[in-house]
Simulated scan of single mutants.
Amino acid sequence: MQRKVLIGVLAVSLLGNALAIGAGLRLMSLRAQLTGPVGEAVIFPREIRRDLRDALAENRETLTPTLQEVLKARARIVALGTAEPFDRAATEAAMGDFRRDLDALLDQLQPLVLDRLDAHHQ
């Protein structure tokens, strides 16, 4: 009995891994289709990426509330976009809220990125 349960759990685990790998490959393929060869080339060197991660970690307390607002706005879009009956005006308004919240997050992130790039070039 235990052996059958173990084999069943292993089979489910393998199936889950296969689905996750398939989804990951599909996502990578979609990203490549959307961005083309330019998307692969647009990345900061490892040292700068490390500095940027440090900046994000150091400013987590101020960034988190704004990021949470962006995520809540995105959730509202999904909820309204999948609701029946579909309310286009409400969904469009939620998309406007998302853009506003995303702009606020970018306004917080831009100085952090510029400061780290400036420090890197000094």
Rank of each mutant, 00 (worst) to 15 (best):
L80D: 07
A90F: 02
V12E: 02
D51V: 02
F44S: 06
A41K: 15
L10G: 04
D54W: 03
L117Y: 04
D101R: 14
N17M: 12
G8S: 13
A93D: 11
A90W: 01
L67H: 05
R100T: 14
R50G: 01
S29P: 00
A94Q: 06
H120F: 08
G24W: 10
D51F: 00
A41I: 05
R99L: 08
L117I: 02
L106N: 15
A11K: 07
E47L: 07
I48M: 13
H121R: 13
T82P: 02
A11W: 04
E58W: 01
I7K: 06
S13N: 08
L27C: 01
D51T: 04
V78E: 14
E47T: 09
A89W: 00
Q68P: 00
G8F: 07
A90M: 02
P111M: 05
P45K: 06
T62A: 12
A18H: 01
L19W: 09
D115E: 13
T91R: 10
P65L: 12
Q33K: 15
R46N: 09
D51I: 00
V42G: 00
A20S: 09
G39W: 04
G16M: 10
F44R: 02
I21D: 02
R76V: 06
A119R: 15
A90T: 03
L10D: 01
I7L: 13
L14V: 12
L105Q: 05
P45V: 10
V70G: 08
A90V: 02
T35L: 14
I43S: 14
L19G: 05
V9G: 07
M95H: 05
